[in-house]
């Protein structure tokens, strides 16, 4: 997979959106929410929605329970059963010492800078050896493809409510990445064609 990473916006060059690591995706937001107060799974889902707005992929309750289960197994959270009148017990999760430490380590750590692990780059370098692909055509097609993704992001920005600031920042981040990719393609054209 060829992915351009930075923070938690991962836009790959096929126009798909690549998976963030599990750490960033679900585990750490859950740890962070539990650092504030113990909560059950459904409350966590709601808190995620409230915190991130549209900037978060629709949190899936099954995914949240699976992740909580793994966090529990790793000793980062613990669950207590709370009795409810005329309903099954519900599990309330809280953060352990280890969990707090993992969260602090994550929050204090630096984030890898953007890196290009790019299949396109391989194609570009190897193009003359394959005898099929001409570099100028490769660059042109890729450029126009990126612009198609940009149009999609632009549409997304237009349809996202202005008050959802995190969502807009996320979209803007993805757009700036694309702009950098396009500038880079232009440099490739200047140097290689």
């Amino acid at each position: 997979m060829h992915v351009i990473h930075s923070g938690n916006v991962n836009v790959n060059t096929q126009g798909d959106y690549a998976p963030v690591t599990e750490e960033m995706g679900v585990r750490l937001p859950l740890l962070a929410l539990l650092a504030k107060e113990p909560a059950h799974g459904y409350e966590l889902k709601q808190a995620l929605e409230l915190t991130f707005g549209a900037a978060y992929p629709s949190p899936n309750i099954g995914q949240i329970y699976v992740t909580l289960g793994r966090l529990e197994k790793d000793g980062l959270v613990r669950a207590v059963a709370v009795e409810q009148s005329n309903r099954p017990n519900k599990k309330v999760y809280y953060l352990t010492e280890d969990g707090r430490e993992a969260l602090t380590t994550w929050a204090d750590g630096i984030v890898e800078g953007p890196r290009v692990r790019d299949e396109f780059f391989m194609k570009l370098v190897l193009a003359p050896m394959t005898g099929i692909a001409d570099r100028s055509a490769l660059i042109g097609r890729q450029t126009r493809h990126f612009l198609g993704i940009m149009r999609d992001l632009h549409h997304l920005a237009e349809t996202t409510p202005p008050e959802d600031r995190f969502a807009h920042l996320l979209i803007e981040g993805a757009m700036l990445h694309l702009q950098a990719d396009l500038d880079w393609l232009e440099r490739c054209r200047e140097e290689l064609t």
């Binding site: 991962n10 998976p19 995706g25 679900v26 707005g53 996202t160």
Partner: peptide
């Protein structure tokens, strides 16, 4: 791909 529906579609989660 299908057009993006909401900003969160820029990310994908694995739990």
């Amino acid at each position: 791909r299908r057009p993006l529906g909401r900003a969160g579609d820029v990310i994908e989660l694995h739990g």
